[in-house]
Write a protein that binds this DNA or RNA. Sequence first.
DNA 1: GCGCATTCAGAAAGCGCTTTCAGGCGTACG
DNA 2: CGTACGCCTGAAAGCGCTTTCTGAATGCGC
Lengths: 345, 345
Amino acid sequence: MDDSGERTHVTLQDVARAADVSLATASRVLHGTARVRDDLRERVLAAAGALAYAPNAHAQALARASSQVVGVICHDVSDPYFAAISRGVMRVAAEHDQLVMLASTFRDPAREIAYAAALRAQRARAVLLIGSGFEDREWERAMDAELGPYVRTGGRVAVVSRHRSLRVDAVLPENRAGAAALARALTDLGHREFAVLTGPRALTTVADRLAGFRAALADAGVELPEDRVIEAPFTRDGGYQAAAEMLRRGTRPTCVFAVTDVMAIGALAAFRDHGVRVPADVSLAGFDDIPIVADLTPALTTARLPLEEMGERAMELILQPPRARSRIERFPAEIVLRASTAAPA
Amino acid sequence: MDDSGERTHVTLQDVARAADVSLATASRVLHGTARVRDDLRERVLAAAGALAYAPNAHAQALARASSQVVGVICHDVSDPYFAAISRGVMRVAAEHDQLVMLASTFRDPAREIAYAAALRAQRARAVLLIGSGFEDREWERAMDAELGPYVRTGGRVAVVSRHRSLRVDAVLPENRAGAAALARALTDLGHREFAVLTGPRALTTVADRLAGFRAALADAGVELPEDRVIEAPFTRDGGYQAAAEMLRRGTRPTCVFAVTDVMAIGALAAFRDHGVRVPADVSLAGFDDIPIVADLTPALTTARLPLEEMGERAMELILQPPRARSRIERFPAEIVLRASTAAPA
DNA sequence: GCGCATTCAGAAAGCGCTTTCAGGCGTACG
DNA sequence: CGTACGCCTGAAAGCGCTTTCTGAATGCGC
């Protein structure tokens, strides 16, 4: 065929030359942007095929000043919560022929900012921030410094589950109301003695769920003393730790609320390891309804969030042209009572 | 400040102009590529900051003919198996300042090829294919047509868990040996009556695990009749279906092997729903050791694969310069006996 | 004090593509 | 038969950046 050892990329120029047409014509054929005489079109197509031509997306992005890449920043893809949301995101992205750049920050604010900057540099057409932000002035300033100019130059930004940044579209789970509803369901069951296992209070998601839960408890005349709120990392192991710590302290509520299902999974393990029966000795409830919790034994009572749908919606928002007022879409949580909760003994 | 309503991007040219230096100098300052007089450097830095300059990664990629994007193609991010591998991938990518474009194909061959093409167009410096390929001639040809030229022009490709494509680096779990070891562990427990719940046989992962399991069984003098191998989709629900189907057929083995943990989770649910006790009535084993299965009740016996590590290794391979001979890294599976298996009644 | 070697800044040539702007030809019309 | 008008192709100007090459200072040695 050609001189072997092709070490360099095939360019549109090469295709045009091989087809003996101009660059412009080759471009037009490949995009169907304008009518081209049939024989020329054939030649271009043939040449492109023979040379295994692949357009250089960077050159295209540069020339057209637009790209079809959207960025998604989350805490950790391997957390089922983010995985479920990502799934929805990916599906809609695929439908719209968008490429997704997915970043895991592992909850490191610096890394989050670095990714935002990289995405801006990539001229990603949109950036999706999934998961609570950080209650950190420095970080907020830095993030604004990245995203502000990005938005001003036509970049689209949306967030899932964080309110602070005001000017962007948002998909917001109703954490507060959901937690309140859960609390009511639990008090309706007869519980009066609670403990809560939470992640870092600085995360708005945590704060909202806690506040909603506590408020509804108060309405029912139940108090939640501060020492019944146990803080630990926002992971399965964190849930285990928190539950173990609770047991160690001798705190014996009739019902435990873990602010996320992931933490509830850890708590369930801790209870099992310590011989505490769920729900006979203690009821346990989570939040999110990640896919696995229905398969646990006992199946977990939780507040269901339509995670995949939230991801889909966020991606749809971001692909639409911006509105003057930023859109806020709220997703209510639905209480799902399963075997992990029962009336207190 | 400047004329408001900035609708266009700040370019290096703008920065240079504001700092009253040449384009070249500005570029040099921003990259530290060469010594620049201190006052000029200061001016450039100040201007870049004031203008919130963000380099255009596309222009950079074009000018330097390289990018720091790596592509990852998997079946479904929300499957814990891929999520765990992705986690390792992400971590190493972050360490090396690489941006990851993550695509879920939802097991659609056409989509896989479309992504490969897009990644090639993006001049991704490397592409990682995770998960079994498809036993489809047409697909193989199309994939080769994308990846061949890509590799020839300096693109790096690696695969996790698929052998067919020969010329690329690979991270291979020892599915066959692992399944064999699992079979031995199970026969050692005293089981002689087995059933296997599998995903599509066309997937090499499935074929290998099945073959290894069957071979070791044969060595132990145990036969696995074809009607004891039940095929279903490669998901939690597939596992449920397969187990339900097995029960419906009246097949009552003393031990069931689900070729993936995800399917085992479904099977466990099916057994529970049908009043079949695990392991009292039937033992159940999976494969992969995805994080959740240790928390199930009963905890699942499985063949552990170091998923996160496999992802890390794959990313490392791909970031290294290519070798003449493609590298193959094998990861053995380790048998983890948990409560879901016991000696037959 | 002059010539030469060094530094370091700037001009300019691409990187591969899109798209505007002319220009060439063919047709329809006067 | 000449002019006007379309339609299609090609030339060329960028898109924003990196990097080589050139040239102007400066510092040094003799």
